[in-house]
Amino acid sequence: MNLIIGLILATIISFLNFVIVDTYFGLPEEPGVVGADNVGHSIKKRGGDLAGGFFQGNILCSPDASAGTLIAAIGVYALGLEGGLIAAFLVFIGNRLCADPGYAGTTGALTMTVIVILCSYIGLTPEMFIVGIVIAIFLVQGVHHPTSTKALGKIAKLFGRYTKLE
C-alpha cells in the first residue's frame, strides 16, 4: 500500500480505537488522580471543555488506551501476536502502579493487537500504525487543547460519559 495513504488510514484507525475505548471506559467522567483534575480545570480556564480536560489529564497521568494502542503496535512490530499480548500485560502493570484499575489500557492494547494483525493482511504494516498513533496522540495532546477538548467533550456526550463534576 502507498505509504501516505497507509499512514492516513492508520492514523484514523488508531485515533478511533483509543478515543472510543477511553471514552467508553469513562475517562471523561472523572479524574482518576489529582493531576488529572488539575489538568482538566487548567484547560477549562483556557476556554476548553472540562470532560475533555479530564480525558487529557487521565491519559497523561496513567497509561490508558492511547499508550496501550502505541505499545501494542510496537509489540506486534517486534514480536507479532506475542508482542501485542505482552504489551497488554505491561500496560496493566503500568496502570496498577498509576492508581488506575486499567480497563481502558488493557482493552485498548488487546483491540489494537487484533486490528494491527488483521490490517497486516490488507497491506497496513505495524510501522504505519506506530507512526499513526503518534500522530493521533499529537493531534489530541499537542496542537490546541481548547479545540481538542471540545471535540473530546462532544464524543463523551455522544457516549453518555460526560462528566457530572463542576
Binding site: E82, F92, P101, Y103, T106
Partner: peptide
C-alpha cells in the same frame, strides 16, 4: 469501569495471556 475488585474476567486472563506470551 471504575471497580477495583479483582474478578475472574479481569484481570486474571490478562495476566495468563501476558505470562504465556
Amino acid at each position: 469501569r471504575f471497580s477495583w475488585v479483582n474478578s475472574a474476567i479481569y484481570p486474571t486472563p490478562i495476566i495468563a495471556l501476558g505470562l504465556l506470551a
